[in-house]
């Protein structure tokens, strides 16, 4: 690895680590993706397989980079945890970044050593060619862009459609497991409701005892999120049915049953 390449890789690693540790999502996202999938693998690749050698082909290098990066993430995390470390953003950032920097150093050192032992003149670098010719633009870039746009568009639309389909209002009535009976023989029920629309109100809660007699009633006024919670005191020795009524409905919208104790 030549000095420029090593410097760029090291600089990118430090920048990604800083972005991950201190940056907002907009910068921590690319930084984290680089640290998780690219940089450690790239550096290890360079350290193990020297560039210019025919050890591995382009396709193999392309697959080795994310593979080795994930090795660092998994085995690094396992090693860190086994010595008592805590796996959080900072520790994983350090694992990935330090591994990358060490591997970059090794790659650079190996290149230096190889250069010292190699007396042959450096290989001539072919003249830079135009990266994107008009022909290539039409033949490669245009259709690939089209493919990416189609797939991305389909993905975004599919995501939105799935969220819209899933996004159904769920109205529930619930009670926390009741507490013990007090000295007066009563229990306190913490009753909650959610997903209540004010427009469907008014909401009213009625609780009934063993005999079918109404033991109490309360108006339920949901907050802006459609949630409500309150306490209800009921006899401990009776089986209580708690009904939530919507608007002028005659039948209960939601029902709880609390067994006697």
């Amino acid at each position: 690895m030549n000095p420029v390449r090593a410097g760029v890789l090291a600089g990118l690693t430090v920048a990604a680590a800083v972005a991950v540790e201190f940056g907002p999502l907009a910068v921590s996202l690319p930084g984290g993706l680089l640290l998780a999938f690219v940089l450690p693998g790239l550096a290890l690749n360079e350290a193990v397989f020297r560039p210019g050698r025919r050890d591995v082909g382009l396709t193999e290098r392309a697959v080795l980079v994310p593979s080795l990066s994930l090795v660092v993430l998994v085995l690094g995390g396992l090693g860190l945890w086994s010595v008592g470390g805590h796996l959080n953003r900072t520790s994983w950032t350090l694992v990935c970044a330090v591994t990358t920097l060490i591997a970059t150093g090794v790659a650079y050192y190996r290149t230096l050593r190889a250069g010292e032992s190699d007396d042959s003149p450096p290989a001539t670098t072919p003249a830079p060619t135009k990266l994107v010719s008009q022909e290539r633009l039409i033949r490669d870039v245009l259709p690939l862009t089209l493919a990416v746009l189609l797939v991305a568009g389909a993905g975004v639309w599919s995501y939105a459609d799935s969220v819209d389909t899933y996004d159904v209002a769920v109205s529930s009535l619930s009670a926390a497991p009741p507490g013990p009976v007090d000295t007066a023989g009563n229990r306190v029920l913490q009753v909650s409701a959610s997903g209540l629309k004010s427009i469907d109100g008014p909401w009213r809660m009625v609780w009934i005892g063993d005999s079918g007699a109404q033991l109490g009633t309360r108006d339920v006024a949901p907050d802006g999120d459609g949630a409500w919670t309150g306490q209800v005191t009921v006899p401990g020795d009776e089986r209580i049915v708690v009904n939530l009524f919507r608007g002028g409905d005659a039948t209960a919208f939601r029902t709880l049953i609390i067994a006697s104790q």
Binding site: V20, G31, L33, V63, S67, L73, N88
Partner: peptide, 28 residues
Amino acid sequence: EMGAGLSLLTGLPVTAAGIIVAGVAHLI
């Protein structure tokens, strides 16, 4: 570990990180 690492490094929710990890692993 892959999912948690990516989630912590990027700040993405676990679900998003998991989708990315599964996709990358599949491609690899």
